[in-house]
């Protein structure tokens, strides 16, 4: 299949790729996305500054394939690219329905570790001794209250603001966002174009720091902070709720309109 083949892009593109990044090898290559996405390929070859800002050619072939698969899916469905939430999101108990508590730590001097009876895959720390040091039997009702208290305290006092992802999760999220930007551009979803942006603006839009507090391939550490923007499809739903895309004339209108989220449901 053509999309699986690796093509060398024109010299101009290869040169642009090496501007802002440390190449992983001297053999800079970009994957041809396949004939069905030729328009995207043309967009990139005609605008090497976009490729450079994404550091696309320096990224592994597997990442590039993932990105093009995201674009292909968006073209097929008519919906923005998607990526799942990282597993740690669920492990931290942020999906309230599960009330999973992996990763919770308490002061070991005050709390004794016990295991949840009904959900043995998670450990739970709880003050399971009375004042005289006798072990207490924890009923499900008590456990339920403790869980709710923990979640409430966590929200009020020490909210989770950092999500760790695996390399694979991080790459999927990042690929989805780059694919989304290209999909927006190619399908003219907004009346402005990324090809008019300078390198600084493109860097601000496409850098890993836009979505990740830490993107450290050397130490295999990928961290999202403050807002989990894992899926452009989810974000696009918000946009559509608060912005009338037909009325957007320029980026100023987009910025002003996006502030309307404060009154949306």
């Amino acid at each position: 299949m053509k999309k699986d083949l690796i093509y060398s892009l024109p010299v101009l593109l290869a040169t642009a790729c090496s501007d802002d990044a440390e190449p992983q090898s001297n053999n800079i290559q970009c994957i041809h996305p396949g004939e069905d996405l030729q328009a995207y390929y043309d967009l990139l070859t005609q605008n090497p500054q976009v490729v450079a800002a994404m550091n696309l050619c320096e990224r592994p072939a597997s990442f590039q394939t993932l990105l093009w698969d995201k674009v292909r899916e968006a073209e097929k469905t008519g919906l923005p690219p998607d990526a799942p939430k990282p597993q740690s999101y669920y492990d931290f108990g942020l999906e309230m329905e599960t009330k999973s508590l992996s990763g919770v730590s308490f002061d070991s001097n005050q709390y004794q570790k016990i295991e949840m009876v009904e959900n043995a895959e998670y450990d739970f720390y709880f003050p399971a001794k009375d004042g005289e040091g006798r072990k207490l039997i924890i009923s499900n009702q008590v456990l339920e209250r403790a869980t709710e208290t923990f979640l409430r305290n966590q929200e009020e006092r020490e909210p989770i603001k950092t999500i760790y992802t695996t390399k694979e999760e991080a790459q999927e999220i990042y690929a989805a966002h780059l694919a989304h930007s290209l999909w927006i551009e190619k399908n003219e979803k907004v009346p402005w174009s990324i090809i008019d942006y300078n390198s600084e603006q493109l860097g601000e839009l496409f850098g890993t720091r836009t979505w990740f507090k830490t993107w450290d391939e050397k130490n295999d550490e990928y961290v999202i902070s403050l807002v989990l923007d894992h899926s452009p499809r989810e974000t696009w739903k918000v946009i559509n709720d608060i912005v009338d895309l037909e009325d957007l004339t320029d980026q100023k209108a987009g910025v002003r309109g996006s502030a309307g989220y404060r009154y949306s449901e």
Partner: peptide
């Protein structure tokens, strides 16, 4: 992103949220 913020950290979260929305419109 619409309903599941990682943290409700006041201006810290909402500042980032605001930028994410603009980014989704290809606005840096």
């Amino acid at each position: 992103m619409s309903v599941e913020l990682i943290a409700r950290e006041g201006c810290q979260s909402i500042g980032a949220y605001d930028v994410k929305l603009a980014n989704a419109l290809n606005i840096p």
